[in-house]
């Protein structure tokens, strides 16, 4: 497996009949294992759509999308669910379960893996929360955490299962500048430690610095993919 993500000629449409409209046009994109890529572009350019396709949350309609060497075009629902288990998702909202503690929320990401027993789940979740700086707040419910802390729990939940890929859509949008930057660098550090690739969508210019490469989208197409490449 030479690429974490390999996309060729990806197209996508929304709507049916008269309202059917093409959103993505002939998208090509490759992301190497461990590579951190930031996706930017104007509102409505199709960033989120691309991210949901890569995250196996939507079925591929046209073109080829290979994740960890597995073709998603034509994949069954069950195949897509299996692929999702190898991806860590971070959303704009933390989406933590309010009736669970921070640690229980993180453990939810591990309960899908039958090979991990309860003790190990607990230990991994505890360690992960310590790594995001919440070692003292393991048993807090989300309601008793600040916005930044909640997003850290969400980061811990996304990364505790050692995903090969982290997909994040504006993970700092609901946070203030300082907290947002902290969370972004936290995602970067943890992903690098684990060798995970990251594809992160953001409008926030302050966090562009964490990227190995910046890809811009416009009107459903990738533009000047190489232009912002960092050294």
């Amino acid at each position: 497996m030479t690429h974490a993500i390999e996309i060729k000629g990806l197209g996508h449409w929304f709507g049916t009949g008269e309202l059917r409209r093409q959103i993505l046009f002939d998208v090509d994109l490759t992301i190497a294992p461990g590579e951190i890529v930031i996706l930017t572009g104007p509102s409505g350019s199709g960033k989120t759509t691309l991210l949901t396709l890569i995250g196996a949350l939507r079925a591929v309609e046209q073109g080829s999308l290979t994740l960890f060497g597995r073709e998603l075009h034509g994949a069954s629902d069950n195949d897509r669910i299996a692929v999702r288990r190898r991806i860590g998702f971070i959303f704009q909202q933390h989406n933590l379960l309010g009736f669970l503690t921070a640690r229980q929320n993180v453990e939810m990401a591990l309960e899908l893996d039958p090979a991990i027993d309860a003790t190990e789940r607990r230990n991994l979740a505890t360690a992960m929360l310590a790594a995001v700086g919440l070692g003292e707040r393991l048993d807090h419910p989300p309601a008793k955490l600040s916005g930044g802390q909640k997003q850290r729990v969400a980061v811990a939940r996304a990364l505790v299962g050692n995903p090969a890929l982290v997909l994040a859509d504006e993970p700092t949008a609901s946070l203030d500048k300082v907290t947002g930057h902290e969370v972004a660098t936290l995602i970067e550090r943890l992903a690098r430690e684990r060798g995970a690739s990251i594809l992160l969508v953001t409008h926030d210019p302050r966090i562009l610095g964490i990227a190995d490469r910046i890809v811009a989208m416009e009107d459903g197409r990738i533009v000047d993919a190489a232009e912002h490449r960092h050294s």
Binding site: I81, Q93, N95, G98, M108
Partner: peptide
């Protein structure tokens, strides 16, 4: 009231 949380679980790979 927990639709987004349930959706998150689905995204994580819950069936």
């Amino acid at each position: 009231t927990h639709l987004s949380e349930y959706a998150t679980l689905k995204a994580m790979g819950y069936t």
